[in-house]
C-alpha cells in the first residue's frame, strides 16, 4: 500500500513505519518523505525518544523485581487459600451431614440392640393363675431351656390315660 504523493504527511503510515509494519515500497517512500519533511523527522525523533524512554523504564522496573520472592509469595498465598478452602472449611461443611448421619446410625443401633440383640432371659410361656376341675391328677411344669409351660392332667374317667408318661 503506497501513498500516491510522498510529499504529503501521512500520520497513519508514519505510525506503521515506526512500528515496522510497512512493506518495502512504503518503507522507501517514508524514508524519502522523512528525509524531505522536517516535521515528520521531528515526530519520528520524538516518538523514538519516547519509545526508548519507555523501554528503559520498563527494563528498570523489571530489573527491580525479585521474581523468586514474588513467586514464593504467590505460591504461599495460593496454598493458604487452598488449605482454608479444602481443609477446615470443608470439614465444617461436611459436619451438617456427618452429625445427622451419626445420630441416625446411633438410633438405629440402639433400636436394633434393644429390640433384637438384647434378648431378655426366657420367662415362662404361660402363667397359670387358677385351675379347677375334676381330674385324678394334674401337673404343671416347664421345659428347662425355653420355659414352655406344660399342663399335664389325667381325666377321672379316663381308664386309658398314662399318668407316668412324663
Amino acid at each position: 500500500m503506497t501513498h500516491p504523493d510522498s510529499n504529503v504527511c501521512d500520520e497513519m503510515l508514519l505510525d506503521r513505519y515506526l512500528d515496522g509494519d510497512v512493506d518495502a515500497g512504503e518503507r522507501v517512500q517514508m524514508e524519502a518523505h522523512i528525509a524531505a519533511c522536517r516535521q515528520c523527522r521531528r515526530q519520528v525523533a520524538a516518538l523514538e525518544a519516547f519509545s526508548q524512554n519507555l523501554n528503559d523504564r520498563v527494563q528498570h522496573a523489571v530489573d527491580s523485581v525479585d521474581f523468586v520472592a514474588l513467586e514464593k509469595q504467590v505460591l504461599n498465598k495460593a496454598l493458604r487459600q487452598y488449605r482454608s478452602r479444602g481443609g477446615l472449611s470443608r470439614f465444617v461443611a461436611s459436619l451438617k451431614y456427618i452429625i445427622p448421619a451419626t445420630v441416625t446410625a446411633g438410633l438405629l443401633l440402639f433400636f436394633t440392640y434393644s429390640n433384637y440383640v438384647l434378648k431378655p432371659p426366657p420367662v415362662p410361656s404361660a402363667i397359670i393363675n387358677s385351675f379347677t376341675g375334676s381330674m385324678s391328677s394334674v401337673m404343671i411344669f416347664e421345659t428347662p431351656e425355653t420355659r414352655q409351660t406344660i399342663l399335664w392332667y389325667t381325666e377321672e374317667t379316663d381308664v386309658e390315660s398314662e399318668p407316668n408318661a412324663v
Partner: peptide
C-alpha cells in the same frame, strides 16, 4: 377343667394328658 392363664405373646401352652 377350667383355668385362667397369662399367655406370652407368641408363646405356647402345652395341655396334655
Amino acid at each position: 377343667f377350667e383355668t385362667q392363664v397369662q399367655l406370652l405373646n407368641r408363646g405356647n401352652l402345652f395341655v396334655g394328658g
